[in-house]
């Protein structure tokens, strides 16, 4: 099997002190039928390795849009986004995918597990795409970390919401990423299950020294982060 990990882009300028995520005066304006809508208005953010940052704010304030921009899933109208020290502006879709590969992962509110794959395969597939030779072992370990080693062969449809989100956490953290983006990771879970998933997320992120940026409405979850920022009408403070 070719070593796909070699395809990852490591900018020559990146050092240990380089911020993992950096947004400079980022603006995002969308064109609606009623006219332009300003989603983000000059957002600045810097997140270092191992740091945990929670973004809170009302619905529609631009939290999820900001996280999508920071992960390279969307492009800003103006301003600069740097991920792992790399300016995202000149990268095309495949360049962005290669940059994220094995180093940047996402956790979604609605899990986005592949419904036709078992829990084990859901965790293993991104590892294989990223070129990890020991994908099987890493996937097993990650599912063990979220206490789902007994559910390896179960499909998402056979698991509860909490279990599915634990699989999503395992999938996001199995490759020991440098940056984890989590968009409402406990939004679809009850309080007890949400707290459990949050414990796992923070524990494993700390163990693997990942930069964790999470968007949440849950103040308890936000307060567990090292830094809490508020998004209000497209302005981060």
């Amino acid at each position: 099997m070719p070593d796909l990990a070699n395809e990852r882009q490591f900018p020559p300028s990146e050092t240990n002190s380089t911020p993992k995520v950096q947004l400079d005066d980022v603006q995002l304006t969308l064109n609606a039928s009623s006219g332009p809508v300003e989603i983000l208005r000059g957002v600045n953010l810097t997140v270092a390795s191992g740091e945990t940052v929670a973004i809170v704010g009302p619905s529609g304030s631009g939290k999820s849009s900001m996280i999508s921009l920071a992960a390279g899933l969307e492009r800003p109208t103006s301003g600069q986004v740097r991920l792992l020290g790399q300016d995202l502006a000149p990268l095309n879709e495949d360049g962005l995918a290669r940059l994220r590969r094995g180093r940047v992962t996402m956790i979604f509110q609605s899990f986005h597990l592949l419904p036709t794959m078992s829990a084990f395969d859901n965790v293993r597939a991104p590892l294989e795409i990223s070129g990890f030779e020991d994908a099987d072992e890493l996937a097993r370990q990650a599912l063990d970390d979220v206490r789902l080693s007994h559910r390896l062969d179960h499909f998402p449809g056979q698991m509860s919401g909490g279990e599915q989100q634990r699989v999503a956490v395992a999938r996001a953290l199995a490759c020991s990423p440098e940056v984890v983006f989590a968009d409402e990771p406990t939004g679809n879970l009850d309080t007890e299950t949400g707290a459990h998933v949050a414990d796992l997320l923070f524990d494993i992120a700390a163990k693997r020294r990942a930069a964790l940026i999470l968007v949440t409405h849950d103040s308890d979850l936000a307060n567990r982060a090292g830094r809490v920022l508020t998004m209000q009408k497209g302005v981060l403070s």
Binding site: A71, L73, E93, D94, A97, R98, R100, R101, G102, V104, T105, M106, F108, H112, L113, L114, A125, P126, I129, S130, R171
Partner: peptide
């Protein structure tokens, strides 16, 4: 989901 985890087009 696959794209967000680094799968190219």
């Amino acid at each position: 989901a696959l794209k967000s985890f680094g799968a190219s087009g």
